[in-house]
């Protein structure tokens, strides 16, 4: 940010508005669309906007990780699932009473979570004033805090990943020796 440049503040504001707009627009697309592939694309746009917001919060590392993991890995994994499920869109269902009931329940849960988060954010004390930097957001600072202050959370997450890997292994082994297959499918050509 160069203070000598006349419209620096406006440029920063425009970039911030772009990040907020991308986040909101992506989230709305992901929720409102009926085509699942557009929903994934909306999620991707939303994550890009979120990365921009992280960048504004002085954490470029987190911003890039958001892109690398959420756009590059999570969205691609969702697309794997989409490809295995259904190539074409299903026709739109007529509205049933059950759908309306579920919609109301989902709205209430969303309102509860949103309200609780807003309450915590507005009423809780903020240890640091917003304009002071907690850390410089560098890789070294993140590494130090992950292995000291937040080491329990770090280890818990690695445990979750281990469980996920084991589950994938169990599923894969079960798939190979599926009972009830009259003619086992020939293995793919090994070259």
């Amino acid at each position: 940010m160069n203070a000598a440049f006349p419209f620096a503040d406006w440029l920063v504001l425009a970039a911030f508005a772009l990040a907020v707009g991308l986040t909101l627009a992506g989230a709305l697309i992901a929720v409102l669309t009926t085509r699942i592939i557009r929903g994934v694309a909306g999620l991707m746009v939303c994550c890009l906007g979120l990365a921009g917001l992280y960048y504004f919060l002085n954490s470029p590392f987190l911003a890039l990780m958001e892109i690398l993991i959420y756009v590059g890995a999570v969205c691609v994994t969702i697309i794997f699932a989409v490809m295995m499920a259904e190539p074409d869109e299903q026709p739109a269902h007529a509205t049933h009473k059950a759908h309306i009931a579920w919609g109301i329940v989902a709205t209430m849960i969303a309102l509860l979570i949103g309200g609780a988060l807003a309450y915590v954010a507005l009423s809780g004390p903020w240890p640091a004033r917003p304009e002071t930097l907690v850390s410089d957001g560098s890789v070294a600072a993140i590494g130090v805090s992950l292995l000291t202050t937040y080491s329990l959370a770090f280890e818990a997450i690695s445990l979750v990943l281990l469980v996920a890997i084991l589950g994938a292994l169990v599923l894969a082994c079960g798939g190979r020796t599926a009972p009830g297959l009259a003619t086992p499918t020939p293995p793919p050509a090994q070259r």
Partner: peptide, 8 residues
């Protein structure tokens, strides 16, 4: 991170 968008 930006290279990973290419596949999408």
């Amino acid at each position: 991170s930006f290279g990973s968008i290419n596949v999408m």
